[in-house]
Amino acid sequence: MSLSEVEAATESEQVEQPAGNLRKEAWKRLKRDPIALVGFGLIAFFVLVAIFAPLIAPYAPDAQPGRGMITPTNIPGPSAEHWFGLDASGRDEFSRVVYGARQSLLVGVVATLFGMAGGLLLGVLAGAFGGKVDTVVMRIVDIMLSIPGLLMAIAIAALLGAGLWSVMIAIAIINVPVFARLLRGQMLAQRGSDYVLAAVSLGVRRRPIVLGHILPNSISPVIVQATLTLATAIIEAAGLSFLGLGGADPRVPEWGRMLADTQRYLASAPHLAFFPGIAIVIAALGFTMLGERLREAIDPKYRR
């Protein structure tokens, strides 16, 4: 370090200036960004399908309109009547994919919310108190991050027993350290900023400083991360269901489980893998596209 900078660094940490109109500008940029708009469109489509599934799907998810047409060697593919074909039990694949959107969205949103909540809690603890609390929390986070995510999710889900809730909790837990670390870093940066110092010098108590100043100014990247996590959560949920750790009720369609169920018919009925697979990809893609562009819009470091 150069001589004259030693103290300069200690006495006035110049935090990058948070332009006040960040949010508005980010919004403006997003509205003009075709990729973000496509991502948003995909998500909107996905959400609408989930909400209006009963109106869109021609059959109930557990109805077996084609029961008589099915033999183990002949599972009819797409036709005018059954757009995505039939599955091995004679159910309408299109209706099941449509209803499956509900499950995937539910798992993704709930798991992400839980993960974010846990991450926020740990991040606020570490970021607000610093010192020993910070050290302890961050060591836990480091340990969790050192275990491969999906492996840990499998272990947790297996431990909790197969079921929708175990999948959601398992995915939530593996995302906790990601949020915690992100938030803590942001909060540490904000903690050294002048406006926080100003609040301290005014005699504002710690809690309003943390909750009223530091947290709101640290939250933007967390929201971006949540969007991206939604995408991975959908894929992870599919993965866990594929491994048989998913929902207990086979009548409720879920994309990952649908994929798992097609294993035996992959050669004779590839459409059974194709449609749920493409649904997962498109949903994840929508969240990823929006999340990435949101990140670029909010964080100048990512701007090209």
Binding site: Q14, Q17, G20, S193, D194, Y195, S201, H213
Partner: peptide, 16 residues
């Protein structure tokens, strides 16, 4: 005892 800071932008919370 109060303080006035050098950088008026940095010393104000942008969201307030």
């Amino acid at each position: 005892m109060q303080m006035v800071f050098q950088d008026p932008m940095a010393s104000l919370d942008p969201r307030q």
